[in-house]
Amino acid sequence: MKTNHVHFTLNGESVEVSIEPWTTLLDYLRYNQKLVGTKKGCDHGQCGACTVLIDGNSVNSCLCLLVSLEGKEITTIEGLGTAENLSTAQQIFIDEDAYQCGYCTPGQICSTIAMRNRGEINSEEDLKDWMSGNLCRCAAYKNITKAARRIYEES
């Protein structure tokens, strides 16, 4: 099977791999790296559960081929903080009870960080629009919005 060579940074570590060109970033993270914190919710870019950060921007990792990420910096939920050593954003999600089942949570958190990195949120509506790429079937939206606002303003 033909493979392509690609080099990138994953959670601060430099990685070089040769991989089939159709491999999505999501499948690479879950199957090859066993970084299962990034979730597959639809595999079609419709739900946001697989959201990760690429150079600080939020990306649906299911829509992103790994071989296209030459030189990029990839950060997953595992790269933000661990259960024993949580990042500020992760702690805010706990404080605000901004989840229920937790399945969409890694993606939600990555989206809030990308929102903070980008800026340009001028209203509550802007914030809700930004966060609407991440579906939460438990519908913890009120608390997700509270957490996202705090992360935007405080962290």
């Binding site: 970084l35 299962v36 914190g37 990034t38 997953t76 939920i77 595992e78 933000l80 903080g81 661990t82 259960a83 024993e84 949580l86 992760q90 702690q91 999600f93 706990i94 989840y99 937790g102 949570t105 890694p106 958190i109």
Partner: peptide, 8 residues
């Protein structure tokens, strides 16, 4: 909570 927000 710590497990859910850290992907573990």
């Amino acid at each position: 909570g710590p497990q859910k927000v850290s992907g573990s």
